[in-house]
């Protein structure tokens, strides 16, 4: 008994370490490879390497590395939460895991309907990935969501899902949906179809990026103000950034924590609403019933 118990504990600790390791690795990578910049410098993601591919070079940047780190950390965290889970035994982490699953399932069934219950894992992973990617800026790392490419990838995935569910009643039904309510509005319908992923990507990216830009500007302004007020103090005191202690952290609560979590929630919510709204459930069920009836008759 005790032998299996120690083994359980060792695996537990291993999983926790693997959860914490990726962010630490991200910080180490940043310290080692990203050139240090002082003052106002708003740049995109630092490019670590670029692989030569036939069509165009594949760029491996900070955004990709960081989003992979978030994914690895989240995967191991989920393994940790569900490690040694058993029915009818309420350990602390089992309760947390159950709470997460139940909340997301309730959210999905409320917003998308009973038919889409299987979407809960997808929505939960988008929510967690987006939220923790934005929260990475708390550790001083580059948040992957402030790179348009990352968010555009997610939005494209959602766009494919929307189109798939619109196609589910047959391509003819899909094409006919562009001619509603009047056929000559078709160009506008096509534009609004394309605008969906674009607006989703821009919304998420713009919110996180604007937070980053404002944080950098305020940090630089506070540095200037400190130099103005305390610049005449002797020795190291004259260079010490007094005003930069604490004040940026207050703004960070809004721009990093609140805005990041809110945007993650909104992205997941819009995903649910768009996919749920794209699927003509009644037509689909009618068609399915007609098909089964036909098969029974023949």
């Amino acid at each position: 008994m005790s032998k299996s118990n120690t083994r359980f504990k060792i695996i537990d600790i291993l999983l926790l370490v693997m959860t914490i390791l990726p962010p630490v690795a991200g910080i180490v990578l940043k310290v080692l490879f990203v050139p240090h910049s002082d003052g106002i410098e708003i740049t995109g993601a630092h490019v670590f390497a670029s692989l030569d591919l036939p069509l165009m070079p594949l760029i491996i940047s900070e955004a990709q590395i960081n989003s992979w780190l978030v994914m690895i950390a989240l995967a191991f965290f989920c393994l940790y939460l569900t490690h040694g889970i058993r029915a009818h035994v309420d350990t602390k982490r089992a309760v947390i895991a159950e709470w997460i699953v139940e909340t997301i399932e309730k959210l999905v069934t409320e917003n998308m309907g009973e038919y889409f219950r299987g979407f809960a894992p997808f929505i939960c992973s988008i929510l967690a990935l987006s939220a923790f990617s934005s929260l990475m800026s708390l550790l001083g790392l580059f948040p992957p969501t402030s790179d348009l490419n990352v968010v555009a990838g997610w939005a494209l995935l959602v766009f494919f899902l929307i189109t798939y569910y619109k196609m589910k009643c047959g391509p003819l039904h899909y094409l006919k949906s562009f001619g509603e309510p009047v056929p000559f509005l078709a160009p506008l319908n096509i534009i609004s179809e394309v605008a969906t992923p674009v607006s989703m990507a821009f919304r998420h990216y713009g919110n996180i990026l604007s937070g980053t830009v404002i944080s950098v500007l305020i940090a630089a302004a506070l540095q200037g103000l400190t130099n103005l007020i305390f610049g005449n103090l002797p020795g190291i005191l004259g260079q010490f950034p007094f005003l930069r202690i604490g004040i940026p952290a207050v703004l960070s609560i809004y721009f990093d924590v609140f805005s990041g979590c809110l945007q993650a929630f909104i992205f997941a919510m819009l995903t649910m609403l768009y996919i749920g709204g794209a699927f003509p459930l009644e037509d689909y069920l009618k068609k399915k019933a007609a098909k089964t009836e036909k098969r029974l008759n023949t």
Binding site: S199, F202, R203, Y205, G206, N207, S210
Partner: peptide, 9 residues
Amino acid sequence: ETTGLYALV
């Protein structure tokens, strides 16, 4: 907020 963010981008 979307229109504002388009302008921001």
